[in-house]
Amino acid sequence: MYFVLALCLFARESYEEVLRVLTNGILGSRALARVNRSSLCRARARLGEDLLETVFR
C-alpha cells in the first residue's frame, strides 16, 4: 500500500526509483531494491481498487 501511495507522490519516477526511495535507510533494503518490476505491477493489481478507495476516503 505504501508503494502505491508513493507512486502518486513520485509520479515522474520509475517503479524502481520509488522503491529505492521508500526503502532507503532500512536494514536489508538491498534485497527489496532487486524486486522485479513485473512483481511490483502484479502486487499493485492485487491490491485492487476497493482498498485504494477506502484509504483515500
Rank of each mutant, 00 (worst) to 15 (best):
32 L>H: 10
27 L>K: 12
14 S>M: 05
9 L>E: 12
10 F>T: 01
4 V>R: 02
13 E>I: 00
19 L>Y: 02
19 L>P: 01
54 T>G: 07
16 E>I: 12
38 S>D: 09
17 E>S: 11
26 I>H: 10
17 E>A: 11
28 G>Y: 06
39 S>H: 11
37 R>I: 13
40 L>A: 03
15 Y>N: 06
31 A>V: 12
22 L>T: 05
24 N>W: 12
57 R>Q: 13
6 A>H: 04
40 L>E: 06
37 R>W: 05
20 R>G: 01
46 R>Q: 10
53 E>L: 15
35 V>R: 04
11 A>S: 15
43 A>Q: 11
51 L>Q: 09
18 V>P: 01
51 L>K: 10
42 R>F: 06
44 R>G: 04
16 E>T: 13
43 A>P: 00
55 V>W: 12
11 A>D: 12
46 R>N: 12
51 L>S: 10
34 R>S: 15
21 V>L: 14
42 R>A: 07
46 R>P: 00
29 S>G: 06
27 L>A: 11
9 L>D: 07
52 L>H: 07
18 V>S: 01
17 E>W: 00
32 L>W: 10
33 A>D: 07
36 N>E: 11
50 D>C: 02
25 G>S: 06
57 R>D: 07
35 V>F: 03
11 A>H: 15
41 C>F: 06
57 R>C: 10
15 Y>A: 02
48 G>E: 08
3 F>E: 03
2 Y>S: 09
13 E>N: 13
23 T>D: 04
